[in-house]
């Protein structure tokens, strides 16, 4: 009976998170298009509902009611499996994200590794989709995209290692807590300036590398070489339409928001209030979390709007010859600083 109750509780939490996430993504998608439009002096979607607020739901209905087409020469099972993999994996990573104090569905000890593992699996959706389509452009795009994601995972891994060394734990909740206790603000004797405690300040170069690698990892412009409409038509999604395409897009945006949430947790103090005084502390943690995620996403959207697309060889150069050495050296530097100054947390 108790097992059943625990199971029902987890199921309920998961459903709640899923619904909240999907509604959030509907508006994040709209925001993405609106910001892009505003930069280009357009209006963006403004017809469906007031200020175009229901645009994403209209798109959803359109995708769902279209006829799915499956290419005759494709591997049909894998062709339909690929979007499912992308979407399910992207959503399952959210199980460990603490959106507020104690609000993670699974508060596991290896939370960071879990997120890293799941996001490294995301490449399979793309590679299987590209291969199963049995078409030239999707295949080329899948290879490109897989190489790109594998390359940038390396630097993301090292950036995460530096944060882990500072926090002394692989648990996402613990990482946020360790940012609340100590840091610049505590040493200056002004602990209420909580935002100075967060890791964005001491690990600022890592934040930049993490942000750019996150753009590359999620195939966002300026690194959207998987899509590259000018050379590869629409990349690995070329043969997809209707609901399978919707699942790909959904998976992509879920992992983008996941990367925003990871940036928030690792560098921006998660759910903690920026200033540790009322009225800021009256606001619930989840609100701060959402605000920070939106802030990071705004940066994602602005980058999409005003940075031109990278050339593929330059993308590889940036990943392997610039970010990898910098993050590797930073791991050493951070380790030395922590050890020599005795700031490393006991444990």
């Amino acid at each position: 009976m108790e097992t059943f109750l625990a199971f029902a509780l987890i199921l309920g939490k998961s459903l709640l998170l899923l619904v909240a996430l999907l509604v959030f993504i509907a508006y994040i998608l709209l925001a993405d298009r609106k910001i892009w439009a505003a930069v280009q002096l357009r209006r963006g979607p403004n017809v469906v509902g007031p200020y175009g607020l229901f645009q994403s739901f209209a798109d959803l209905l359109k995708f769902v009611f279209k006829e799915p087409t499956i290419p005759d020469s494709s591997n049909k099972f894998l062709f339909l499996l690929a979007p499912l993999i992308t979407c399910v994996l992207a959503l399952s990573a959210w199980a460990v994200i603490p959106v507020a104090e104690g609000w993670a569905i699974a508060n596991i000890n290896v939370g960071v590794l879990y997120v890293l593992a799941i996001s490294s699996l995301g490449v399979y959706g793309i590679i299987i989709g590209g291969w199963a389509s049995n078409s030239k452009y999707p295949f080329l795009s899948a290879l490109r995209s897989a190489a790109q994601m594998v390359s940038y995972e390396v630097s993301i891994g090292f950036v995460i290692v530096t944060v882990l060394m500072c926090a002394g734990s692989l648990n996402l909740t613990e990482i946020v807590r360790s940012q609340q206790d100590q840091g610049l603000a505590t040493w200056l004797g002004v602990p209420w300036l909580a935002f100075l405690n967060w890791y964005w300040l001491p690990l600022f170069p890592m934040l930049i590398i993490f942000f750019i690698s996150a753009l590359a990892e999620t195939n966002r412009p300026p690194f959207d070489l998987a899509e590259a409409e000018s050379e590869l038509v629409a990349g690995f999604m070329l043969e997809y339409g209707s609901t399978p395409y919707l699942l790909f897009m959904l998976g992509e945006y879920v992992s983008i928001i996941l990367m925003c949430a990871m940036t928030t947790i690792l560098f921006l103090g998660g759910w903690s209030a920026p200033i540790d005084l009322p009225p800021f502390t009256w606001v619930p943690g989840v609100v701060w979390f959402v605000i920070k995620v939106c802030l990071v996403f705004f940066m994602f959207a602005m980058t999409k709007a005003f940075v031109p697309r990278y050339r593929y060889d330059q993308l590889m150069r940036l990943g392997w010859k610039v970010f990898l050495p910098i993050s590797l050296v930073m791991v050493l530097v951070v380790a030395f600083v922590l050890q020599l100054t005795g700031w490393a947390q006991a444990g």
């Binding site: 590794l113 890293l116 593992a117 799941i118 490294s120 699996l121 399979y124 897989a146 594998v150 995972e153």
Partner: peptide
């Protein structure tokens, strides 16, 4: 997690 990150995420790719 290491098995998934290393073998599934990189080697199998």
């Amino acid at each position: 997690m290491m098995l998934v990150v290393v073998y599934v995420g990189a080697v199998a790719v």
